[in-house]
């Protein structure tokens, strides 16, 4: 492969940068207040004043999409951070030390993965109550197994390598072998893993908010906008389309980026 341009990385990186940029912009500035009712007429179609039209309360859809993306991404970032940090810790320890604890934790991860994640999140939210923090914790816990499994496999593979045996002979401690010898070898798989995790987290958050369990009104979230707009699908198709397209473009960007990163790693 060599010098051939990585189109996936280029397109995915560009699209992701654009969407994240818009979301960042939305947290600081929006054309109208996303929660202000009557910013324009109800169900106004897209125009120069309202780029993506207005919704059933006359709120500016573009402003709501901007801020909704910001909320979605922030939640996704927290979810991935919890999943990645805890998953890497569990995976490293299991893969390196093995033994009965590894067996037990691996089975537990398999069991968690076997359930549909939205279903499990529903259970957690119904126990802990609805709200943004609950969603973050519930999804964060559900994201641990995929990272743990990824890291465990890689760690177990490296543990067998001669350079780790050499390090043991040199008298390097287990802790340092894990952090200084094995961890730097994991970035290659963790990178795409984090991006795919982002992808899944955005989708999961949208699903939860769609079901009314995530971000609470009046604050916008892509999932809840999609849910609200269903009723007006024929009257104001731009409302549903805007929220849907924002989700689709975010996911597309992350997917392309993950694919690009994996291709670069293989090359």
């Amino acid at each position: 492969m060599g010098k051939r341009t990585n189109l996936f990385l280029l397109l995915g990186g560009g699209l992701t940068a654009l969407m994240v940029g818009l979301a960042l912009l939305g947290t600081f500035w929006t054309p109208y207040s996303p929660t202000a009712m009557g910013a324009g007429e109800k169900f106004a179609p897209p125009s120069l004043a309202h780029l993506l039209g207005t919704d059933n309360f006359g709120r500016d859809v573009f402003s709501r999409v901007l801020q909704g993306m910001g909320a979605s991404l922030l939640i996704a970032a927290c979810v991935v951070a919890i999943g990645c940090l805890a998953g890497t810790l569990v995976g490293c320890l299991c893969g390196y030390f093995g033994g009965p604890a590894d067996y037990l934790l691996t089975r537990l991860c398999d069991a968690v993965t076997a359930f549909p994640s939205v279903l499990l999140a529903l259970v957690i939210v119904s126990l802990a109550g609805r709200g943004t923090a609950q969603i973050v914790v519930a999804l964060g816990i559900l994201f641990i197994p995929s990272f743990a499994r990824l890291v465990r496999g890689e760690t177990a593979r490296h543990r067998q390598a001669n350079y780790i045996q050499s390090a043991r002979l040199m008298g390097v401690s287990h802790g340092r072998i894990l952090t200084a010898h094995i961890l730097p070898n994991l970035w290659g798989v963790l990178g795409p893993g984090v991006v795919i995790g982002f992808n899944n987290a955005v989708l999961s958050e949208a699903s939860m908010s769609f079901l009314g369990l995530g971000v609470q009104p009046p604050f916008p979230s892509l999932g809840s906008m999609l849910s609200d707009s269903q009723t007006y699908l024929q009257r104001a198709p731009w409302y549903a389309l805007s929220a849907g397209m924002a989700i689709a473009l975010l996911i597309l960007g992350f997917s392309l980026l993950a694919e690009g990163l994996q291709r670069r790693r293989r090359a």
């Binding site: 390598a161 001669n162 350079y163 010898h181």
Partner: peptide, 27 residues
């Protein structure tokens, strides 16, 4: 203390995540 080993496979005996300087300094 600390006898060392040189392995047959030169591809697996150096940590791919580190420079030679780091690997030489580690012992």
């Amino acid at each position: 203390p600390r006898p060392q080993m040189v392995f047959q496979d030169p591809y697996g005996s150096l940590n791919p995540a580190h420079t030679l300087l780091w690997t030489l300094e580690e012992p």
